[in-house]
């Protein structure tokens, strides 16, 4: 996945899209006050400077699907594991809730079900049948919308072809009003995501930790008077 910070406006369409797609529970006011709100993707906002010279920066952060994911080796039950496709998988029914993985994740992208989720009826009808709901004591996180990836692969296999670039879109990518996010196969050098990942604006978050994140951020551009004249 590539996220272009020059396009991203911090609108959080991606946040709500992820909630809708992935049956993420709303924890309510009291639990939110206890810092237990769950947003598999969040838009970090940073201010720099003081009035009136204030700069604002937005940065959407989903699970970085690390190539060397610190959350994986520490999990005693293989609930957090590396898939053949190179994603960081999370098997909910294997998780016993040690929360070790969440401590190890440098990006704080793992979320824990402190209680059983509640959907006031009939809000339960909104649940996406393609995605399981998670019960108390279980860790969860962004899956890169694995259900969509699988569906795309099955579809392509049924049609006896390869998955086309851009055909599979996670919910956040699909929704993004500025088209700041691009999803694709990094192992295919021709994919749009690979192409952007080679951009000279490309950076990776906390790259120095050696986690080999699979999310590439394209840094914000700046405006120079003579450049565009």
């Amino acid at each position: 996945m590539v996220i272009d910070l020059d396009r991203c406006t911090g609108c959080e369409a991606c946040v709500v899209a992820c909630h809708a797609e992935n049956n993420i529970a709303t924890v309510g006011e009291d639990q939110a006050a206890r810092a237990r709100a769950m947003h598999w993707i969040r838009v970090e906002r940073y201010y720099e400077g003081e009035f009136p010279n204030v700069k604002t920066k937005f940065m959407p952060v989903p699970c970085q699907q690390c190539g060397a994911a610190p959350c994986e080796p520490v999990c005693p039950t293989f609930a957090s594991y590396h898939t053949i496709e190179g994603l960081n998988g999370q098997v909910y029914n294997r998780c016993i809730g040690t929360r070790y993985c969440a401590n190890a994740c440098p990006y704080n992208t793992r979320f824990f079900n402190f209680y059983n989720p509640v959907w006031d009826k009939p809000l339960d009808l909104q649940l996406n049948p393609d995605v399981s709901v998670r019960s108390e004591g279980i860790m969860e996180k962004c899956t890169f919308c694995v259900q969509r990836i699988k569906a795309g692969e099955v579809q392509a296999a049924a049609e006896k072809r390869l998955v086309k670039d851009g055909e599979i879109q996670p919910a956040c990518v699909q929704s993004c009003p500025t088209q700041a996010m691009v999803f694709g196969d990094l192992s295919d050098p021709e994919s749009e995501a690979s192409r952007l990942a080679r951009s000279n604006r490309a950076t990776r978050l906390l790259d120095e930790l050696g986690t080999f994140p699979k999310v590439t951020y394209l840094q914000r551009g700046s405006w120079h008077d003579n450049e565009n004249a």
Binding site: G10, E12, V15, V16, G28, A32, A33, V43, R45
Partner: peptide, 14 residues
């Protein structure tokens, strides 16, 4: 969803 999604700037919820 609109109550629990943080306001982009203040990050206030609920």
């Amino acid at each position: 969803w609109m109550q629990e999604a943080p306001d982009p700037l203040s990050t206030v919820m609920w």
